[in-house]
């Protein structure tokens, strides 16, 4: 799909102003950009999380398309039910829409961790829906606790940086690759800064038959202790440093590096990404110099591994 500004201006906004997401949160732009990729009637299922809570504070909703929230760990299952319910009613001749797209949205906690079983099950069953994770690297909604998406060295309220610990020590789950291992037709990583790449990929995700997965990188000024104005810059830096490379995985094994990542002559140092955030501040003390180096080595190694998978020398 070609992404024209003219079309974007005409496109209806699926989420209104007046929501209570923090100033500078990248999740609303992610939803807006996702909205540009929609192709017709759409139903959104939202796992418990910042986005769900802050956009639907009763008695008001920011959503302009049908939307449902049930619980934290089950959004993929809820979406399964909607897809199959509609399919059944369609086959029985009592559903008025020819096609409705179903999108499940979860945060990293709801996707990498508590909702992973439900996600994996839905992927295996092959329902035709898109799952998007907006990954802000921790349980930000409950007060910045570590998740499976938290980066090594990241300080959270359950992985403090202290005299003995550098924040979280463990690596981040490679969720896109784990999901792709289900051999689903389409997986892609996106970020809001590279919005054209995002829209194109999301549209592809909608168009494939069967489940598709979008991993959207979502800077969080509150949790990351970054300036609210820097969220798009951080998204861009995450791509440029290899923290969140942009790529697609077709049918589970065909890896394609996307232009914004492919065009990088070399990665920027992870330090540049970390320096803009209070949550990594402690890593710049001499005590954690080695640890920081290890994080860089891990990011570089992952990048090289990805390049190899994408057939880039």
């Amino acid at each position: 799909m070609s992404v024209k500004l003219k079309d974007m201006i005409q496109s209806p906004q699926i989420m209104s102003s007046g929501h209570r997401m923090c100033a500078g949160c990248a999740a609303p732009p992610i939803i807006k950009i996702m909205g540009f990729a929609l192709r017709g009637p759409t139903i959104i299922c939202n796992a418990t999380g910042c986005l769900e809570v802050a956009t639907t504070i009763y008695p008001q909703t920011a959503w302009r398309i049908p939307w449902i929230h049930v619980a934290f760990e089950n959004v993929a299952a809820v979406a399964s039910g909607i897809v199959e319910g509609i399919n059944a009613m369609k086959e029985k001749g009592r559903y008025k829409h020819e096609h409705v797209d179903v999108i499940a949205i979860g945060g990293d906690g709801g996707t990498f961790d508590i909702g992973f079983g439900s996600l994996s099950g839905a992927l295996e069953r092959g329902h035709d829906f898109v799952y998007m994770v907006y990954d802000n690297g921790a349980y930000q909604n409950t007060g910045i606790q570590r998740s499976g998406a938290t980066l090594p060295g990241q300080e959270t309220t359950t992985s403090w940086a202290g005299k003995a610990e550098p924040g979280k020590r463990e690596r981040k789950k490679p969720i896109a690759e784990i999901v792709a291992a289900h051999r689903i037709p389409y997986v892609a990583t996106v970020d809001p800064f590279h919005y054209r790449d995002f829209i194109t990929k999301f549209r592809k995700a909608l168009e494939v038959e069967g489940p598709a997965f979008i991993h959207a990188f979502s800077p969080c000024p509150r949790g990351w202790r970054s300036e609210s104005s820097k969220s798009m810059e951080l998204a861009k830096l995450a791509v440029e440093t290899g923290i969140h490379p942009l790529y697609e995985i077709i049918n589970g094994d065909e890896y394609i590096m996307s232009a914004p990542s492919k065009n990088l002559t070399e990665l920027k140092p992870v330090d540049e990404y970390m320096k803009l955030q209070g949550q990594f501040k402690h890593l710049f003390s001499p005590q954690w110099e080695d640890f920081r180096k290890q994080v860089q080595e891990q990011v570089t190694a992952d990048w090289e591994r990805l390049k190899k998978k994408c057939g880039i020398a």
Binding site: S16, G18, H19, P59, Q60, T61, R64
Partner: peptide, 30 residues
């Protein structure tokens, strides 16, 4: 505001799309 139980939609459903527009967030601005 402060409606009775029988004056609101069933199950906490919100029937008016985009009604968050009623809530002005401009006051948050520094």
């Amino acid at each position: 505001m402060s409606k009775k139980f029988n004056e609101i939609p069933m199950g906490g459903n919100i029937l008016e799309p985009g009604s968050a527009m009623q809530y002005k967030t401009g006051g948050w601005r520094a």
